[in-house]
C-alpha cells in the first residue's frame, strides 16, 4: 500500500482548472519527485494534500486514512508536513523558537499549563530543546540558534525550513522547491541531507525544477502538465519521453 495516495483530485480557481483529476502514489521510504512546467498545478496539489486549500473533489489517503479536507494542523498531527516554496516562516521568532514551534505534544501550549508553569511542560520543553539542538547541529545552524529568523541568509532559511519539518518527526515530508535559488555547493549539501533522511526511514515528495537534483535524488518521478498527470517513471525513462519533452520545450513544428 502506498503511504500517500491521491485519487482524481480536482480544484478550480475562478473557472481555471488548476487540478483536473490528478492521481498520485507516494511509496514509503523513497524520494518521489513531482515535476512539470510552471502552472502545471504542483503547488496547488501540495496545498490540497496539506489542507491549506480544500480540494473540490477527489480523495487523499495517508497511511490508508482518508484525510481529504482536513484542517492543516490535523494533517500535520498525523505525520504529514510540508514546506513552502518561498522560504516562509516566523521572522520575528528566533531560529531556536522556529524549531521548537514544530515540536509536537507540548502541554505548555495550553494556556492553563502556561500560567502555572506545569512541570510536564518544562520537561517537554527541555526534550524539544535537545532535539532542536541535535537537528541544528546536523544542519549547521548552531551558531545562529538565538538569532531572529529574519537575519538568516537565503540558504540558511532553506535549511531552517528542513529543520522545522524534522522537529515534527513526520512520516512524509512534502518539499516545495528546497534548492531553488540555492548555490551549487549548498544544493549538494541539501540533497545529502534529504538522502540521509530517507535512509533514516522518512519518505519525501519533492517539487523541484532543478533537474540534476531530481535525477540524482528521486527513485520515482511524476510529471504534471496543465493540471493533469502526463507521465511517470524513473528520471531516465522520462527524459526520453516525447510527451514530457513537448510539455517542457514545446512541440517541434513540422515543415512539410
Amino acid at each position: 500500500m502506498a503511504l500517500l495516495e491521491v485519487r482524481e483530485l480536482t480544484r478550480s480557481f475562478y473557472g481555471i482548472h488548476a487540478l483536473g483529476g490528478v492521481d498520485l502514489r507516494v511509496e514509503a521510504h523513497r524520494i518521489t519527485g513531482l515535476i512539470g512546467p510552471n502552472g502545471a498545478g504542483k503547488t496547488t496539489l501540495f496545498n490540497c494534500i496539506s489542507g491549506v486549500v480544500p480540494p473540490d473533489s477527489g480523495t487523499v489517503l495517508f497511511g490508508g486514512q482518508d484525510i481529504t479536507g482536513w484542517r492543516p494542523d490535523r494533517i500535520a498531527s498525523v505525520g504529514l508536513i510540508r514546506t513552502f516554496q518561498i522560504a516562509r516562516g516566523f521572522p520575528r521568532l528566533s531560529v531556536y523558537e522556529n524549531l521548537l514551534l514544530y515540536g509536537d505534544r507540548q502541554p505548555g501550549e495550553r494556556a492553563s499549563a502556561a500560567l502555572v508553569r506545569s512541570t510536564a511542560a518544562l520537561r517537554r520543553e527541555s526534550e524539544l530543546i535537545d532535539l532542536a539542538f541535535a537537528i541544528a547541529s546536523r544542519l549547521n545552524l548552531v551558531r545562529v540558534l538565538n538569532d531572529p529568523a529574519s537575519s538568516l541568509s537565503g540558504g540558511q532559511k532553506k535549511l531552517l525550513e528542513i529543520g522545522r519539518v524534522l522537529m515534527a518527526r513526520p512520516q512524509l515530508i512534502l518539499l516545495d522547491e528546497p534548492v531553488a535559488g540555492v548555490n551549487p555547493s549548498l544544493t549538494r549539501e541539501i540533497a545529502g541531507h534529504l538522502r540521509a533522511l530517507v535512509d533514516d526511514g522518512l519518505s519525501v515528495l519533492l517539487i523541484e525544477h532543478h533537474m540534476d537534483t531530481i535525477a540524482q535524488l528521486c527513485d520515482h518521478v511524476v510529471v504534471l502538465a496543465e493540471g493533469k498527470n502526463l507521465a511517470e517513471g524513473s528520471f531516465d525513462e522520462l527524459s526520453r519521453n516525447e510527451a514530457v519533452q513537448e510539455a517542457y520545450m514545446g512541440r517541434k513544428r513540422r515543415v512539410s
Binding site: 516562509r88 516562516g89 516566523f90 520575528r92 523558537e97
Partner: peptide, 14 residues
C-alpha cells in the same frame, strides 16, 4: 507570536 508572523505556516506546524 508565530500566528502573528504567519497564520498559515502556524497551521502547518500543527
Amino acid at each position: 507570536r508565530a500566528i502573528r508572523d504567519d497564520e498559515q505556516v502556524a497551521a502547518i506546524a500543527g
